[in-house]
Design a binder for these strands. Structure first.
Lengths: 162, 162
DNA sequence: TGAAATCATTGCACTAAGCAATGAAACTCT
DNA sequence: AGAGTTTCATTGCTTAGTGCAATGATTTCA
């Protein structure tokens, strides 16, 4: 356990680490630029709801990797901001369904667009050939990471957002 | 001021986004594996202190991109866990100097090591040639990002940790 | 039908974060 | 030297995020 087969030089790991910092900064900034008062956690919830559609509280919680109690309270705040809606399911009256409103979807769309803009701007400074190299390198990396054995991965790490 | 000169294809941006998620997950996991009860915020503080040495409260706060009040309370918790120390500066008695203890440094070292292991493990699944390609691609990306005009960048984004 | 499981919520505790006010110390400028 | 200003840390207050445990409502199942 531990070191990889090919030692994977320090320089490579450092490069990955540095890029990681950059990427997180971009993500945070894109949200701040769009919805000043929407937090990262709230945005993650909106993303789940926007992409998966109406969800039960328990499923939303699972998708976010938090407890239902946390998800519930987050929904309180998002409802207050009118970014999501709460319905009681009529089939099973224990369940509460949560779904994104038009305003909520707007936040997600705009933040995503802004993030794309920022990344595109950064990439745009590089020659096209290098852009392509970055794309394939990162795809390879993400693919390799995707194979991480589940045992190695943290519990509720759905990683909906960066 | 939106799109970049070279459009930077959707596929490239998507690749960056995916890699971003992966990287963050790795970072979070490395910390959880080492110090169960040390949070990301606390770890960030430890990293600053370990790398920059003894800091005034105000400088630590700036490095973390938080207010002095937040930094101060964080230090309360870290002192309680004996991961850092608080000294009153004798040159200027307004200042409080904060520095990492041996135990604190240990947390940083181990988490860093673990993160390196995880990344090395992922990279180790790829052929050496591809590892090199990833390293140079990411270096180029980080370098390009480094040139982001300050106006575009968020206020306290020192991004000490991912 | 009665017991067990599922689902959401609420109470309690804690970390994280910002803003405003306070107090202490150092500095500056006549 | 002394008065006013700036710098620094801290504390009170508020809000968000999070988990755990208990509760209540409902559904399922044996």
């Amino acid at each position: 356990m531990g070191t990889a087969h090919t030692p994977a030089g320090q320089a490579i790991v450092d490069a990955v680490l540095t890029a990681s910092r950059t990427l997180v900064a971009v993500t945070e900034q894109s949200l701040g630029a769009v919805a000043e008062d929407t937090t990262i956690a709230q945005y993650r919830a909106l993303v789940v709801l926007a992409s998966r559609g109406s969800q039960r509280m328990v499923d939303l919680a699972a998708a976010l990797g938090v407890t239902p109690s946390t998800a519930g309270r987050m929904c309180d705040r998002l409802v207050r901001k009118e970014l999501i809606r709460r319905h009681r399911a009529r089939s099973d009256r224990r369940e509460v369904l949560v779904s994104v409103t038009a305003a909520g979807r707007e936040v997600v769309d705009q933040a995503t667009a802004r993030r794309r803009e920022l990344l595109a701007e950064i990439l745009g400074r590089l020659p096209a050939s290098q852009q392509a190299a970055i794309a394939s390198a990162l795809q390879a990396f993400a693919a390799a990471a995707g194979e991480v054995p589940d045992s190695e991965w943290p519990a509720g790490a759905e990683t909906e957002l960066a």
